[in-house]
Structure formats: C-alpha cells, structure tokens
Amino acid sequence: MGRLEDLLGLEHPIVQGPFGGGLSSVALAAAVSDAGGLGSYGAHILPPDRITALVAELKTATRRSFAVNLWVPHPEEEGAAATEADVERLRPFYDALGLNPPSLSPPLDFADQAAALLAADPPAISFVMGVPPADVLAEARRRGIVTIGTATTVDEAIALDEAGLDAIVASGSDAGGHRGAFLRPVRESLVGTFSLVPQVADRVSAPVIAAGGIADRRGVVAALALGADAVQVGTGFLVTEESAVGEAHLRALLGEEARVTVLTRLFSGRTARAIPNRFLREMAGFEDAVPPYPVQNQLMLPIRRTGDPGHVNLWSGQAAPLVRRRKAAEYLAGLAGHTGD
C-alpha cells in the first residue's frame, strides 16, 4: 500500500479527475470509488444547498472514499463586470443560435461553498486554483477530512505543502480543462507532467499525485517511477459510460480532432485546454480581450449549453487519442495493471 492508499483506504493509487461545468456525475465518482480508486466530483458551480445534497448523494452511492472539488477564488477577479463591448463581441453567436445575452448573476461565494462542504463531511476535499484559506484547512483537519491541493509548478507545490495539504496533485500542462496556476501567469506555468512530477516529489513531504497526459497503464508506470505516489486521470474517465459528457464532446474526444488541443480563455475567462472548434478559431484574435472569470463564463453559458459542436467547450488533455469508450471499472482495472490494456 502506498501513502495515498493508506490515507484514503484505496485499493489502487488512481484518482479520477474532478470535472467542472456539469461534466461530473455521481455515477462516475461512485463507480471509480467502488472499483478501488478515488472518485471525484467538481462542485465549483454549485450553490451551498446543492453541495450539501451532492455529498449526501455520493455517500448513498458508495461506501468508499470520494473527493469533492472546489475552485479557490482569484482576488484579481473580484468585482469584474461585463461591458457592452463584451456582450457585443458575442452577439453574432447569440443571434446565430437564436439566443439572448444572459443576465449576469452575482458569483457564488467560496466561503459559503466551503462551509457547506465541510459541514457535509465528505471523505476528501480537493482544491484547484490556489492555496485554500487557513480556516478551511483547519476545519478539515478537525473533522478528519483529507485535503488535496493542485499545483502547476514546483513553487505552487511548495506553497501547498507549507500550508499543510494532505496530498498534492502535480498537474502538468498536458492536462485537459482549466489550468490552475496561481503564483505566476499561466503562460509562465506550463510545465509538462513528466518534468514537473520528479521536481515536486523532491521538494514536498506530502504524497504527490501526477496528473496530465496519463491515459493508460504506461503513463501510470512512468509517473510512479518518477516519484509520484498516485496518478490522476481526467480525459480517460471523461469518455467512460458513467460520465456526464455530452454527445458532441464525446465524439470529439474519440475522433481524430482530439490530436490537436489549444489553451484558451474564450469559454470561461480562465485558461483551459480544449479541442479547437469553429468558435475558438473565429474568436482566436480576442484571447486577451475577453473579461475574466466568472464574467466570460456567464456570458458564454447560453452558447455552451446548446451542445452545438461548433460552439461547445471541448475540454481535452493531450493524451485523448489513447482513450476509448468503456465502463469506468474496466478502465480503472487497466490503469491498475489488472487487464491487458
């Protein structure tokens, strides 16, 4: 048994990456946990009452450990507001899809989300985008909740380790979805997984979870050989049968277009890795012009929710060409080396 398995009572050192934006499902998290890994659920878009209900659903669905994920807010994004130019920039897409620009609502309060999650008492809480507040970590320790932080650089890993997180995800630039850089700009924090992992393992005392570009047993073996205690897999689990991925997104992940991914702020205002589509190509010149999260995220929600393949966010890691559709338990068994693939 490795350090992460001991910490969470796992059979295998494999974590399912948490998916935000409605891509997570209770069925997937429970299937991964029941198969001996750590299932995860991305809750950053959920209000406190929904977080309370979610943890209850997960506890009913599995008796094993699972993690619920929150985004640590970025102070520089507080008070951001949409301008008329921000709305007009997207007007052609609203019109083409028969949509009205959305009315923007106040952002969810992280402190309220964290308080609800702590009170619900999940086995583990994972964080991205920063170091969680000291009072949140203290309350998690008091309750016996395992805390997992996410670093995209060695300096971020050291900051998380010094704050007392129980485990640290070393998230390489290969990973799909949002980049969690918080000490330096994303463009200065793009370290590949297999460069990042051994450096982090050498510098922190907490167990290290390698993430990014790991999609099969070969990646697991390589990450463990470089000093990781476990791996976190996102894209591979996103295409499993229990995932909440939409049809257009699934087709893209399983198709030849997944060979190419780009980093973009256009869908949410924070940088994320996605398969390029019509929207990204037509809007490429505005990467630095769109407003920050959560403003751009709210402006894009009506467009993203259409599910139209030319306009939806096709989050993907760089190892997507290695994945295929199957049940989560079967996929986890392969990652753990219990099957031939």
Results as ranks from 00 to 15, higher is better:
residue 92 P to T: 06
residue 110 F to Q: 05
residue 88 E to N: 15
residue 182 F to T: 05
residue 318 Q to W: 11
residue 237 F to P: 00
residue 110 F to V: 01
residue 128 V to A: 13
residue 28 L to Q: 00
residue 28 L to T: 00
residue 70 L to W: 00
residue 196 L to V: 02
residue 205 S to N: 15
residue 39 G to N: 08
residue 32 V to Q: 04
residue 333 A to P: 01
residue 125 I to C: 06
residue 54 L to H: 02
residue 257 E to P: 05
residue 10 L to D: 00
residue 65 S to E: 10
residue 285 G to Y: 09
residue 246 G to Q: 14
residue 43 A to Y: 03
residue 189 S to V: 10
residue 184 R to N: 13
residue 299 L to C: 01
residue 209 I to N: 05
residue 129 M to V: 11
residue 129 M to C: 12
residue 54 L to W: 02
residue 92 P to C: 10
residue 216 D to G: 01
residue 85 A to M: 08
residue 282 E to W: 10
residue 59 K to R: 15
residue 159 A to S: 11
residue 83 T to D: 14
residue 305 R to G: 05
residue 135 D to P: 02
residue 30 A to H: 01
residue 231 V to I: 09
residue 21 G to D: 07
residue 140 A to Y: 02
residue 64 R to W: 00
residue 187 R to T: 14
residue 54 L to Q: 06
residue 100 N to V: 13
residue 130 G to A: 13
residue 274 A to W: 01
residue 21 G to L: 08
residue 341 D to Y: 14
residue 145 I to T: 08
residue 9 G to Y: 10
residue 181 A to W: 04
residue 280 L to G: 06
residue 152 T to P: 04
residue 225 A to T: 15
residue 49 D to T: 14
residue 167 A to N: 09
residue 59 K to G: 09
residue 132 P to V: 09
residue 156 E to H: 09
residue 264 T to R: 04
residue 64 R to Y: 02
residue 117 L to G: 01
residue 139 E to C: 03
residue 86 D to N: 09
residue 293 Y to T: 04
residue 159 A to P: 09
